[in-house]
Simulated assay, not measured.
Amino acid sequence: MSNHLEAIHLLEDKIKEILYKYDFLKEENQVLLQNNAKLHILIQEKEEQLKRGQEEYRLLKIAKTIEGSNENTRETKLKINTLVREIDKCITLLNS
């Protein structure tokens, strides 16, 4: 009979240990999920900053070209021609 009681106590101890580990891992998972969400938000913010920086760089490059510098003159002329064509298409669509 004492063997049965010892087995039951051992089983109870193991169940308590497993429940403790389960609770600990559950809390740890919650913390990790929160950190993951914060990191995703941070990544999105950094991607937006990068896009804004790239757009500012592109505009600055165009402004420098229009300003009279010889760098990227061809590129700026092509961009202006592309924009004019797009505007012409829009006007044609509006008139039809």
Rank of each mutant, 00 (worst) to 15 (best):
L32P: 00
L83V: 03
I8D: 10
A37D: 12
H40G: 08
L19Y: 09
K38E: 15
L39R: 06
I62D: 02
E55Y: 03
L83T: 02
I41V: 13
I18S: 12
K64R: 11
E12F: 04
L33I: 04
K61F: 00
L19Q: 11
I80H: 01
T76E: 01
L5M: 11
N3R: 10
L32Q: 09
L50Y: 04
E6L: 09
E12I: 06
I87F: 00
N70S: 14
V31E: 15
E45P: 01
K46M: 09
V31G: 10
L83R: 04
D23M: 08
I18E: 11
I62R: 01
E12C: 06
K89R: 11
K38N: 14
R85Q: 14
E6R: 05
I18R: 09
N29I: 02
S96N: 13
F24Q: 14
R74E: 13
K64N: 05
N36E: 12
Y57M: 13
Q30S: 14
S2D: 15
H40E: 15
G68W: 00
A7G: 04
K79Q: 07
A7Y: 07
H40F: 08
I8E: 12
Q30K: 11
L32Y: 03
L42G: 06
S69Y: 14
L33N: 11
L60R: 12
N70V: 10
E71Y: 02
K61N: 02
K14H: 06
T73L: 07
L42Y: 09
D23E: 15
I8H: 10
Q34S: 14
L60F: 03
K77D: 05
E47R: 08
I43M: 10
L93E: 12
N72R: 02
F24W: 03
Q54F: 07
M1I: 06
L25N: 12
Y20V: 11
D23K: 10
L5E: 14
L93W: 02
K46L: 14
E71R: 05
K64P: 01
Y22E: 14
E55V: 09
S96Q: 11
L94P: 00
L93D: 13
S96M: 07
D13W: 05
E6W: 03
G53A: 14
A63T: 03
N35E: 15
K64A: 01
L78P: 00
K26E: 11
T65H: 00
K89A: 03
N3C: 09
N29P: 00
T76W: 01
E75N: 03
E17T: 09
I15R: 07
M1E: 13
I18K: 09
R58Y: 10
I43E: 14
N81I: 05
V84W: 03
K89V: 02
E45T: 04
E17Q: 11
E56Y: 08
E56G: 01
L32H: 04
L33V: 04
E86P: 00
N3W: 03
T82E: 15
I80E: 02
K14N: 12
T76K: 01
L94W: 03
L39T: 08
L11Y: 06
L32N: 06
E48M: 08
V31D: 15
Q54N: 11
I66V: 14
I18D: 08
S69E: 13
I18C: 10
I62W: 00
R74S: 08
S69F: 12
L42F: 11
L59E: 08
S69A: 07
K77N: 07
R52F: 01
F24R: 12
I43Q: 12
